[in-house]
Amino acid sequence: MKALLIRNLKVYFRDKASVFFSLLGVLIIFMLYLLFLGDVWISNLPGVPGARALMDSWIISGLLAVTSVTTVMGAFGTMVDDRAHKIIKDFDASPVSRSKIVAGYELSSFVVGTVMSLFALVLGELYIVARGGLWLSPAAMLTVVGLILLSALCNTALVSFVISFFKSQNAFSTASSLLGTLVGFLTGIYMPVGMMPDAVQVLIKVFPVSHAALLLRQTIMAVPLTQTFAGAPEAMRQSFESEMGIVFQWGGSPMSAATSLGILIGASLLFYGLSILQFSRKSR
């Protein structure tokens, strides 16, 4: 399995175009933010101290969540290509079991998602600091790394399940560009959660990736939030947090971070189980 892991990673990172395209969704959001979205949001917070730093860390948190999804999806492209080009035959004729082959794809996608998110985290931090923001504290940094690992795990399970339904490269690339676009909405990056209609809000709140975005926001925005809302009434901070998807409201009360963490772990287990079912059903 180690051999397959190394091979899959080499194949993914050697294809510069596919690495770029798996980051394209993230780059587009970032460009839009730099060009005008950021200014629009900041103009909605007139007279709020540190609004720029606050929104910078907000967008970086969301981008980290999206990077994880799109790069995991991109890495799984290797599996789809291998099936389409029959490379899988070569593995099947070698003494490795089907489950190890699948595990090899999953493991490499997890590694790709983690590495690319860590890379995005470094760039994001550099950006925040370059714009006059503060470095994350070591403890917060550790939490973020932990969240990156968890979200890569959850996305690997999720994509592994989704991908088991696709046979052709075309279906896969359509699905991945669709997901790449949708994920920006579903994590409330294009538009803050509070601005969405109620039905969409429910959808967002059950989508596991948005909980990764939420937890990342809670960690990365902790300091800027405290600074901005230092002298403001508590209700004002709460309404900002619900509006921007930093805290989800469910049935009138705020969801705890532990609940979001539980949802991420639960979704990882659920989708991993389902994808195993799918693959074993197919190989028979």
Partner: peptide
């Protein structure tokens, strides 16, 4: 097995290809 189609990875070198496949054994 030498299959009818060419089944090694086009972006990897010949050596990398043979090495990764050797790992399967």
């Amino acid at each position: 097995v030498v299959f009818q189609d060419h089944l090694l990875d086009p972006l990897l070198t010949v050596e990398e290809n043979i090495r990764t496949r050797a790992g399967l054994y």
